[in-house]
Each structure stands twice: as C-alpha cells, then as structure tokens.
Amino acid sequence: MIKVGIVGGTGYTGVELLRLLAAHPQVQLTAITSRKEDGMPVADMFPSLRGHVDLAFATPEKAKLAECDVVFFATPHGVAMAQARELLAAGVKVIDLAADFRLKDPAEFEKWYAMPHSCTDLLEEAVYGLPEVNREAIRKARLIGLPGCYPTSMQLGFAPLLAQGKPLVNEASLIADCKSGVSGAGRKAEVHTLLAEAADNFKAYGVKGHRHLPETTQGLQAIAGGRKVGLTFVPHLVPMIRGIHSTLYATILPEARDTDFQSLYENHFKGEKFVDVMPAGSHPETRSVRASNKLRIAIHRPGGGDLLVILVVEDNLVKGAAGQGVQCMNIMFGIDETAGLMHIPVLP
C-alpha cells in the first residue's frame, strides 16, 4: 500500500483528493493537515466522506508527513516550496497542485505570483505533471509540479498540432477562449464567487494577462520541440460549479491543408485512457466529464476552410487538479495508471 499524506485538505482540490484516494485500491490515507482545523474529523467538515475517511485534521508537526511515501500539497502557492526540500530528504515523493514547481524560470514565477521562489535549486529537477506529454519523466520523478486546470485543457487540445516534426498551423497566433466554473477559484470566500455575483452572469477576466499563460506557453513550446509559440488566452467565469470548456483556434498553413486532422488527433491520443477524441462534428459538454478524470476533445473545420476549431472539456477539479495528481502518483509508483480513477461521469 502507498502511504499518502495531504497538506491543506480543506479546499475543493483537497476534498477531491480525499474522495479519489479513499477509494483507491492501493492507497492508505495516512495524514491530512490543517492548522486551523487541528483535531477536527475530516468527515465533520465533509459529510460526503462519512464512512470512507476516518482521519482527523492535524497540524503539519503532528501529522508525521515524513513517514508517508508521497505527500500531495493542495495548498496556496508558496507552501509546497517551503516544505518540499525536507520531505524529499526524508525519501518522500512530492506532488504539488499549486504553481510552485510549474515554471522553470524563477523570475517568471515571481512576476506572476508576486513572491520570490524559495528553493530554486529544485526547479530543474521538478517534472511537469502532464502524463500524456511527460509520462516517462513522471515515472522517474520524485517531485511533480502539477499543471493548472486551464493549461491542461489548452496543452492537450493543441498538442497533436505541435508535436509534429514541422508546423501544421500558424504557431505564432494560437487562440484559447476558455470558460471555467466557480470552483476553479477555490473554496475561500471572495465577492466574485458569491451566488448573487456569479449566478446569471458570464464574464471574461485576466485578459491583460493570466498567470496560467506563461505555464501554458512553456508547455506548448516544449511539445513543439522548442519552436516559439504565440498564444492569446482569454479565461471566462461561467455560473456553474465545476467544469472547463476551452474553444481553441489555429490557422492551418497552406502546405497542411490536406491534413486529416481528425485522424491526426485520434492517432496522437490512441491508447490514452483519459483523453477521448470524439467523432467528427461532436460538441462535448462539460457535464459529460463531471467528477471524472476524462478529457474530451472534438475537432471542427468550419466550412472546410483554414481555421481549425478544437473543443475541449474537462472537470477542473479532477483532470484539471486532483485526478491528474493521482494519475501521476500511479505512474510514479509503477501501478496501473487508471487505478482509482475509472469513475463514470455524473449525470445529470
């Protein structure tokens, strides 16, 4: 059994980790931390876990995280980098769901997250936890920086186009028009996520620059073999609890007009258990992936022209966060990658 600890288990990604790991056939939930809720049974805060999780929250000092095999950080940015070095020295693998180990350039991290990076020596070692792109590196890793929810949808949506030996689309002007449910903002109390503010409303935000942009560009350029990629990313907040719908646009180059893009995507993701390339002309819905680790993609070429439209849906809390973390853990420990993750999406 894999002994698992969770730091910061009181947020939405924390409770998703608990939901997934409690049902994982090869996991023993060993510790979960919260300074504020020290001593409170997890099931008192999250009644959905009654009968499934018997742990109580504890401070990090009491939790004995160094006795775990792997520790997940479901915490605000800046927490994991303060504790990662000590855990790694104790032989514990670390999976961070925040941004501490996503960006390779510490100056970029400080620019977008308004804090200096406190363990830059670990950035080179950290592996970006996108299994469909970095599976072999994840297999050997002891430190994972998990992708953000938006970046997961954008990178997997564009990946088949960029992973070819030569450009198929204008890589300097990719566009991502993305929408997320309010749970993407976390469980903290903020005015813009109040029911009276978010319901019956739809708005863009972060148009000038969103912190997921440098992470996504870094990943896309890596997929493209180092070629420079230009991306315009516009996120939106929609009045639903969970889910991401990303509509991606790419202009097909003249020399690639005869490409069968449907087959390109199907072949690229052939064998991937958590990426579903849907039949041509499909329109995936966010509810078709709710509470699952599945990401669905559909390819469109309106009017048979030179604009390619890629539709991507995922659950921001599962494939966009906790589920992807469990997927990485499975790979790191050499067990079935799908273990604990084959939940059927919830309808309605």
Rank of each mutant, 00 (worst) to 15 (best):
D306G: 06
E86N: 10
K179D: 14
A291N: 15
R227V: 08
G14D: 09
A199M: 13
V53E: 05
D54S: 15
G206L: 00
K140S: 14
F333Y: 13
P131N: 05
A66R: 15
K179H: 15
M240K: 12
F233L: 12
H283E: 13
N267L: 09
G340L: 06
E86F: 04
L65E: 10
R35P: 05
A90D: 09
R19A: 11
A176Y: 12
T217S: 03
I6F: 01
R139Q: 13
P47K: 00
L347Q: 14
E215Q: 06
V277D: 03
V289D: 01
G325C: 02
H210L: 09
M1P: 13
A159N: 04
N330S: 04
E314T: 14
G9K: 12
G209W: 07
I241P: 07
A196V: 13
R296F: 05
Q26I: 09
A31P: 10
L347F: 12
L237A: 15
A58Y: 06
G340D: 07
H52S: 15
H77I: 15
M329I: 09
Q26A: 11
G230N: 07
R301M: 03
G157Q: 03
D121I: 05
V191P: 06
D96V: 02
D177K: 10
E110K: 15
K294P: 05
G9W: 09
G225H: 11
A159F: 06
H117V: 04
E136I: 07
K111H: 14
I297H: 00
K188S: 14
M81R: 14
A172Y: 12
L194W: 13
A99Q: 11
T33R: 03
I299D: 01
V127S: 01
V277K: 04
T75L: 00
C119S: 10
G219H: 10
A90L: 05
E285Y: 08
S288P: 05
I144V: 03
K273R: 15
